[in-house]
Simulated scan of single mutants.
Amino acid sequence: MKIVVGLSGASGAIYGIRMLEACKALSIETHLVVSAWAEVTIKQETEYSLDQVYGLANYVYPNQDMGAAISSGSFRHDGMVIIPASMKTVAALAHGFTDNLIHRAADVTMKEKRKLILVPRETPLHVIHLRNLLTLAEVGTAIIPPMPALYQKPVTVGEIVDHLVARVLDQLGVEHNMIHRWTGIPNAPSLGPRGED
């Protein structure tokens, strides 16, 4: 399997790093692009060096290399993930504005009707953010905000990050054992349909 991974400058660099680690452990070929602001965020938010992050990928491209292999629709892959996705990146994709390699590779992914997954990291969201995300969802982009699932009772940030990465892998159709799957509530009382409380 071969995927393109973009790290934009939004907070949440650890999501992208953990995605790369999971792909490496699963022998998934990764083609990585890291924006200039993502490099800053990695240094600010994590203990990873840039060399360590780049070392997790099979191939690394400068974000200004508009002639890179992944900029062409003839480059075949199984999907692209932008994790985290800044609102600038979301806006660029929603309006077809491709001024760097992350934007171009994602635009190509959409036009070739391949799987595109965004992990948008911003809060609160205003109407323009929401409209841009809706535009992308309407053309088939999977939107996976980093919202923690608390039913697994996570006790570390790492567990919360892993759950999100697992959901991204699910969207790509990747088999993994990063999380325990929901199997229902044992001996749950009959309370009627959910949503009535």
Score class of each variant (00 low, 15 high):
V4T: 02
L7G: 08
L7M: 06
A10L: 14
S11T: 14
I14M: 01
Y15I: 09
Y15R: 08
L20W: 02
E21M: 00
A22M: 15
K24S: 14
K24M: 09
K24F: 08
H31V: 09
L32Q: 07
K43D: 14
Q44G: 11
E45Q: 07
E47V: 11
E47I: 12
Y48L: 04
S49H: 03
L50V: 09
V53Y: 01
A57W: 02
N58Y: 05
Y59G: 04
V60I: 12
Y61Q: 14
Q64R: 15
S71C: 05
S71Y: 02
G73K: 03
M80S: 08
I82M: 07
P84L: 08
A85V: 10
A85C: 13
L93F: 02
H95P: 12
G96M: 03
D99M: 13
N100Q: 07
I102L: 10
T109H: 01
T109S: 03
M110I: 12
K111M: 02
E112H: 03
R114F: 00
I117T: 10
P120N: 07
R121M: 01
L125I: 09
H129L: 10
H129M: 11
L130K: 14
R131V: 15
T141V: 12
I143Y: 02
I144P: 05
P145Q: 06
P145R: 02
P148I: 11
P148N: 09
A149E: 02
K153P: 10
K153H: 09
V157K: 01
V161Y: 00
L164C: 00
R167P: 04
Q171R: 10
V174I: 15
E175C: 05
H176Y: 00
R181L: 15
R181K: 15
T183W: 13
G184A: 08
N187D: 12
P193W: 13
